[in-house]
Deep mutational scan, measured.
Amino acid sequence: SDPSEDRAPESARVGNIPSSTSALKVPQLKVAESAQGPAAAHTTDTAGYNAMEESVSREKPELTASTERVNKRMSMVVSGLTPEEFMLVYKFARKHHITLTNLITEETTHVVMKTDAEFVCERTLKYFLGIAGGKWVVSYFWVTQSIKERKMLNEHDFEVRGDVVNGRNHQGPKRARESQDRKIFRGLEICCYGPFTNMPTDQLEWMVQLCGASVVKELSSFTLGTGVHPIVVVQPDAWTEDNGFHAIGQMCEAPVVTREWVLDSVALYQCQELDTYLIPQIPHSHY
């Protein structure tokens, strides 16, 4: 159930021909089969995070001529859309010479989310990475209204306002976009420790780096000194050995919190207090 199309920051360009055919990675995205229709094609874990990302398996898109002007500035990904909605975005992107990729990268400028009429969405990996990267996180209605009015409308009017977990109007995407000089995790050293489900560890690490944190791979690698705040992030329900995560405190002095601390902080683009996310640790033995 991992969102495989989000696994690594590679891009698939639509609308320009790469210098070599080997560089072309066409979105071959799968549809989750469901008797209840597209709305039930998501699996949500206890964290309220949509693990099964969206989309559609299609034939290789038709490439435009390399001489045609390509908008190098805009690059989009989509999240939560049905196959039909994805194809509408594809046509919109081609019309406006926008790069459409299946994986979010540093070059991505827009994340197009499936939302309700009030621009509230589910939480997906692309949603988190879009906010963390200060990108435009907009409703699919931006595409449909632009098509209806036959011009590209202003993104401000379609920015995602909230999500089904953290609140319907928290304005996290807007706050992140306007606060890239004040990253929420700066001054923190974060170790993403142990197993994680539904989200590859490297993507979680990239997320906290985008928010200004330094990533530490091992508990023994924390910088011990003033001005640096170490934090260990774990996902308790992913551990097979009972309560192993309670013993992390015996290996390092850092506070240990659940992954929800990261996800909530990123969604709201406000660093949350650790208290409600802390995992009790077995104290050091004193002999």
Rank of each mutant, 00 (worst) to 15 (best):
Q36W: 15
E189Q: 09
K25I: 08
W142F: 03
E107H: 03
G48V: 04
G37C: 08
C192Y: 02
V165T: 11
A176Y: 01
V31Q: 13
P61V: 06
N50Q: 11
S139Q: 00
Q171I: 06
Q281S: 12
S139K: 00
A51P: 15
T115L: 00
K135L: 09
T108R: 00
Y49K: 11
G162Y: 00
A132Q: 00
F158S: 00
T258R: 07
G15R: 08
N154A: 08
G15A: 07
D6M: 14
S179G: 11
C211T: 15
I17D: 13
E205R: 08
V120L: 02
A32Y: 04
L263S: 01
T99R: 15
P195G: 04
M76Y: 03
A267G: 10
T99F: 14
L100D: 00
Q235K: 05
E155S: 10
A40W: 15
A65H: 13
Q36L: 03
E62T: 11
Y90D: 07
E53L: 03
V89F: 06
P280H: 03
L129K: 03
C271Q: 15
E84I: 14
D264K: 11
E149V: 03
E33I: 06
M76K: 01
R58K: 09
V26I: 04
M251L: 13
S1I: 06
E189P: 12
H286A: 14
P195L: 14
A238R: 14
E53S: 11
M113T: 11
L224K: 03
E241T: 07
F128N: 01
A267E: 02
R161E: 02
P200M: 02
T108C: 06
F185P: 00
N102H: 14
V78D: 03
H284A: 02
P230L: 14
S179I: 03
E54C: 09
V266G: 01
F92V: 05
K151T: 09
K114T: 03
R58A: 09
P38F: 03
E5T: 12
T44F: 11
D181Y: 08
V77S: 02
L29H: 09
K91G: 08
E107S: 05
A23S: 12
R150S: 15
E178G: 07
H246M: 13
E53R: 09
H42R: 07
E84R: 08
R182A: 03
Q180N: 14
S221C: 14
I147N: 12
L188H: 03
Y140I: 02
K91E: 13
Y277P: 03
I131T: 03
P255E: 11
G134Y: 03
S55H: 10
S57C: 09
R69K: 10
I279L: 06
K91A: 13
L278E: 15
N102G: 14
Y193F: 10
G194T: 07
T124A: 00
L81E: 01
G80L: 09
G212E: 10
F86N: 10
A213M: 02
S179V: 05
S11W: 09
R259C: 00
I279A: 10
E118L: 08
A213R: 03
V137S: 00
E241V: 05
E273L: 14
M113E: 00
A254V: 02
V89L: 07
F185A: 00
K126H: 00
A8W: 11
T64C: 15
Q145N: 02
A93S: 04
E253P: 12
E260D: 05
H170P: 01
V257F: 01
R150T: 09
N102P: 12
R7P: 06
V232K: 04
C192T: 06
G37S: 05
M87E: 13
V257A: 15
E106L: 15
T64N: 06
E107I: 10
I282G: 14
M87N: 10
M199V: 03
K72H: 13
D275G: 14
V14A: 03
H97Y: 09
K114F: 06
M113S: 01
T21M: 01
E253N: 13
L125A: 08
F196S: 06
V112P: 01
A40E: 05
C192L: 03
A8V: 03
P200Q: 08
A12Q: 06
L204A: 04
V256P: 13
Q270F: 09
H170A: 02
K72Q: 09
P3T: 12
I98K: 04
M74L: 06
E10T: 08
A35L: 09
L103G: 15
V137R: 00
R150L: 07
N243T: 15
